[in-house]
Structures are given as C-alpha cells and as structure tokens.
C-alpha cells in the first residue's frame, strides 16, 4: 500500500468541508475546466503527435502507422488501437511493470471514444480488401499527473490523429518519409469526466479531487452531440438525476474542449 494513499484518505474530510462551502481549491466552478493547451506536431518520429496540458496534467500522444492484415470480420477496414501508459515517472502511485487494471481501463475507454465515434474513416485505410490495410497505433504517455487523465488522453489522442499524415505504401511496405495526405478524420470525440465526492459532482477533477473521489463518470461526445461512450468508475453509485445532469454538462462543456483542437 503506497504511503500516498493514506494522505488522500486524510485529505478527504477537509476537501469535503471546502466543497460544502462551494469552494474548489483553484476557485473553479464545479462544472468548469482548468486551463487547457494543445500543441500538435511535437514529435519528429511519429506520423502524428500532440501534447496536451490540462491544469498541470501533461500527456503526449504519438500516432504510428504501419501496414498489416485486416480483422477477419472487417476485411475492408483499417485497424486501430489506442494504448495509454500510466508511466511510473508521473506519480508515486503508478507502479512499473504489467499494466494495472486502471491503466487498462484508461486505454480501453479512450480507445472506445475514438473507435465508437468513427473518428477515423477506417474504410479509407483499406489498401487491398481482405489482405492489406493500414494499422493505426495511438500511444499516449502520461508525463505529469495532476488529475483527470481520461479527458487529457482523449484530447491528446484525437489531436494527434488530426496531426497525422498517412505514409505512402509501396510493395506492401511503408515508404519512410513519403506521405499520401492526411489521415482521414470524420469526427472529433471529446471525453468529459466528473468526480463524485460526498454529494458533490465536479468536472475535471484535479489531483486531490481525483484521489479523494468515491465515483467517477466519463462521457465521450462527438461534435454532433452524439454520445459514443460512457464509463462509470468507483464504488459509490450515481442517481438518475446525477447521470442526466452530467450528460447535459458534458454536451455543453465538450464544445469548449473541442475548440482547442
């Protein structure tokens, strides 16, 4: 058991007291995001990349493209995979080694947001049906952890995809340094995460809020206000009204997030 865990257990009472007075540590409203910056093209070795800062949370996403065989049940579509790494670099609570269940969940929820929104036009990535397609890998590294990895990773993922150039393929192989154009992107999914502490629901939890939370809810929304993924986390439940309220807030606030792309 990490020593840090005990510190958050003890912090929770004073945090709850502040929240009961409507106060968040950085004076934000309960449905307000921190300062966000998105910088595209931060890598020379990736086909597309982006660095996102949400408050002090800092993540870097890199897109690598290769060629491979399609999945048997979708022979005319390219493949994609999203992987997020909880680097032990960024927090004393992230252990090196085999991905924890939290790391796997983060990867899969970020992946779902991009996949279910059909953000990438996978049909345009087919080179020879049933035999050769483009494979898109989105890898996201957490550099500095200050809460709310889901939203930061999703934003970095989609920003990196928008920055991605599609490499030329010759004789079944990628030609280094030559590109056929941009990766075809049809939608811009954004994820909004809420943390529940006591009776209070907070958008974009910072480090303290994220570590003291009793439950969390992440909603992925496209630019057309279509919800394409949802994930509830944590041990405490949500009421129907709470879920509805979070969805409405997400629809509104996701637009602000998306404007950074």
């Amino acid at each position: 058991m990490s020593k840090t865990n005990l510190y958050w257990v003890i912090k929770k009472d004073s945090l709850l007291a502040d929240l009961s007075h409507g106060k968040r540590s950085d004076k934000r409203k309960f449905d307000e995001y921190r300062k966000i910056t998105v910088e595209k093209g931060v890598s020379d070795t990736a086909e597309g990349s982006a660095m996102v800062q949400m408050g002090k949370t800092k993540v870097i996403a890199g897109v690598k493209i290769s060629v491979g065989t399609p999945y048997p049940d979708s022979p005319d579509k390219g493949t994609m995979m999203v992987n997020a790494e909880l680097l032990p670099l960024s927090s004393p609570d992230f252990e090196p080694g085999f991905p924890s269940e939290d790391a796997v969940e983060l990867s899969r929820v970020v992946d779902r947001g991009i996949r279910e929104s059909h953000a990438i036009d996978l049909e345009k990535l087919c080179i020879r049906e049933g035999e050769l397609v483009y494979s898109v890998f989105v890898d996201i590294d957490i550099i500095n952890y200050d809460g709310n990895l889901f939203d930061a990773c999703e934003l970095a993922g989609i920003a990196a995809l928008e920055d991605t150039k599609l490499p030329k393929v010759k004789d079944e192989k990628i030609v280094e340094g030559e590109f056929t154009g941009k990766l075809p992107i049809n939608h811009q999914p954004i994820e909004c995460t809420f943390a529940k502490i006591g009776e209070h629901i907070l958008l974009d939890p910072d480090l303290e809020e994220d570590n003291c939370k009793e439950a969390a809810f992440t909603i992925a929304i496209t630019e057309k206000d279509v919800i394409c993924a949802m994930q509830k986390r944590g041990s405490k439940p949500f009421t129907k009204d709470e879920l509805t309220s979070m969805i409405d807030t997400a629809i509104k606030e996701s637009k602000k997030l998306r404007s950074n792309l």
Partner: peptide, 13 residues
C-alpha cells in the same frame, strides 16, 4: 523505457 512513438518503427510497450 522508450515511448512506442519515440523511433520510426513503433516499439511495442
């Protein structure tokens, strides 16, 4: 540790 996108041929995590 090397990030998967740190070199031209992606490194499996």
């Amino acid at each position: 540790n090397m990030a998967p996108f740190s070199v031209s041929d992606r490194i499996r995590p």
